[in-house]
């Protein structure tokens, strides 16, 4: 992050700084598409009645998932920054081994998730557009629905009548910093806009806060004990990606 800022300052002070929108004739921009990757460790074990080391996610699946997401935003306000509404779709999976009373077997079992978000975002790109400083901080807030299902072998696992598949929903937020790539090669950036209509290209890093547990809803089991109503897919995680504004 520090190197990103230093690079931005150097570019801002150099004689070849990115031309402002006042001198550069660019095509209208109204959309933004992001592709991002990140290491996502769902807090499935958090609300469960288990001791550390024996909790199901930790003991069977063990580690973080590689989460891949595609997000599309519609820009609604472009004055002092850009405000947008958008939607995203992602996918991640994590596999481990099923277990028996005398240890784990070679049979694969895994959790697959399909997160879907509705997002409102605000990007403070005023500095980039007016003063050529190619750093764009941003905030996002939204609602997330995650379809999840559990595999065992090549089938969705069930326990009695409880299918290992369901939905979790909740709120998500993210804060990040985008680095506008255009100043690195202004001519290529102009050509990208002229030829493809892509005004700006960014690399970005963001930190996500997700509370996806049906707002903490509980369900009573047959013994009258309150249990989480669904898988807790909350987490705190970083994502990295590339964005195209067009």
């Amino acid at each position: 992050m520090m190197s990103m800022m230093l690079a931005a300052l150097a570019l801002a002070q150099s004689p070849t700084t990115f031309p402002s929108t006042e001198t550069r004739s660019e095509s209208p921009r109204s959309m933004l598409t992001e592709v991002r990757l990140g290491s996502y460790y769902p807090w499935v074990d958090r609300p469960l009645d288990c001791t550390p080391g024996s909790c199901p996610y930790q003991s069977i699946l063990g580690g973080a998932m590689l989460l891949v997401e595609l997000e599309v935003e519609r820009e609604l306000f472009q004055a002092f920054g850009t405000a947008s509404l958008g939607a995203s779709l992602g996918y991640a999976e994590k596999y481990g081994h099923a277990s028996t009373t005398d240890g784990s077997t070679g049979e694969a079992t895994g959790l697959r998730i399909l997160p879907m978000k509705a997002i409102a975002s605000y990007r403070w790109d005023w500095l980039a557009h007016k003063h050529g400083i190619p750093l764009v901080p941003y905030l996002k807030f939204g609602f997330q629905v995650v379809h999840w299902w559990v595999m065992k072998g090549n089938q969705t696992e069930s326990v009695g009548t409880a299918a290992g598949a369901g939905w979790s929903y909740g709120l998500v937020g993210a804060g990040g910093l985008s680095f506008m790539l255009d100043p690195l090669d202004p001519r290529l950036a102009r050509d990208f806009d002229t030829g493809m209509g892509v005004n700006h290209t960014y690399l970005f890093a963001e930190f996500n806060i997700a509370e996806v547990n049906n707002f903490g809803a509980k369900k009573l089991n047959s013994a009258g004990v309150a249990q989480p109503a669904t898988l807790d897919l909350s987490s705190r995680y970083a994502m990295f990606g590339i964005a195209f504004e067009y």
């Binding site: 609300p47 469960l48 009645d49 199901p56 065992k152 409880a162 290992g164 989480p228 898988l231």
Partner: peptide
């Protein structure tokens, strides 16, 4: 599998 272990823990 993961689901059975999870249900046993309260999922």
């Amino acid at each position: 599998g993961f689901w059975e272990s999870c249900v046993a823990a309260g999922c």
